[in-house]
């Protein structure tokens, strides 16, 4: 419990996860410091999303452990709801609640799970909406917003829980290209404010600009990790080189 380095936000040790016979994660080890931004890159199916879902306990892991600020969250008897309130996750497909207005989407969890008063939750919700330029959308339903706006609302919804850690799962992959920038700007601002983040992304330019560290996932393991300039300009592993070559060929870097 106390043998962690100071300022460690998240640690994964030998995490394994299988779906049926297919082993998606084959022993993931990762430590993330507080205020650090880690980008996960890798081909589809390499395990990025599964890894994030395991950290959030949306998927139970088969082996290994996950620790938040030194406390194991994958131990039995841990209050998963309490843990999840400390970890915000944003999904590729937004997953907003379509039957609720934007502000209600944002205040639902604080009022119900954290027992914050409605007035206080609403005040904080409006504050966050203004901060990300969505103040006028508070009483709209998600169907009426653009994809970029919906994703920004989804990020705000996660932030409203005041999480210690944010997990972003390819949050721009479902967006039209012209809407990607507005979402990336939000993430940039979050990084600037010191939020600890683990980001699965296909936006290599973004990863290079923003990440403190880039991890290349391949076939269920972190094959290579390092500073972005090292990974993108001088990758050591052959698989990393091949992956980046394909990205360059596709015009994505």
């Amino acid at each position: 419990m106390t043998d962690r380095p100071m300022g460690e936000a998240l640690r994964l040790e030998n995490v394994h996860k299988s779906f049926g016979k297919i082993e998606v994660l084959k022993g993931i080890d990762l430590a993330v410091r507080q205020h650090e931004v880690v980008c996960l890159i890798g081909a589809s199916g390499s395990g990025k999303s599964t890894m994030l879902r395991c950290i959030n306990l949306l998927e139970p892991i088969d082996q290994g452990r996950v620790m938040i600020e030194g406390q194991e969250i994958t131990a039995s008897g841990v209050d998963v709801n309490r843990v999840r309130r400390r970890i915000g996750i944003v999904f590729q497909a937004f997953n907003l609640f379509p039957h609720m207005t934007v502000i209600r989407n944002i205040t639902l969890a604080p009022t119900q799970a954290q027992k914050v008063s409605s007035a206080e939750a609403e005040r904080r919700g409006v504050e966050l909406l203004s901060r990300f330029g969505l103040a006028d959308k508070a009483s709209d339903y998600p169907d009426r917003l653009s994809g970029g706006q919906q994703q920004r609302v989804a990020i705000i919804r996660a932030l409203a829980m005041k999480p210690d850690l944010m997990l972003l799962d390819e949050v721009t992959s479902a967006l039209d290209p012209e809407l990607v920038a507005e979402v990336l700007n939000v993430i940039r601002e979050l990084a600037g404010s010191g939020m600890t983040m683990v980001i699965a992304t296909h936006e290599m330019g973004f990863a290079r600009d923003l990440a403190d560290r880039v991890c290349f996932l391949d076939d269920g393991v972190i094959l290579e990790e390092g500073r972005p300039e090292q990974i993108f300009s001088a990758p050591r592993e052959q698989r990393t080189q091949q992956f980046l070559a394909r990205i360059v060929a596709a015009g994505r870097l």
């Binding site: 949306l58 996750i89 999904f91």
Partner: peptide, 24 residues
């Protein structure tokens, strides 16, 4: 994915049912 979103916010199984699943 609606359940995943609700549970990821720390809502309990029952709260997810009541506020997210059943209304829809």
């Amino acid at each position: 994915s609606q359940v995943a979103a609700a549970r990821s916010l720390g809502l309990s199984r029952w709260q997810s049912m009541r506020f997210v699943i059943l209304p829809q």
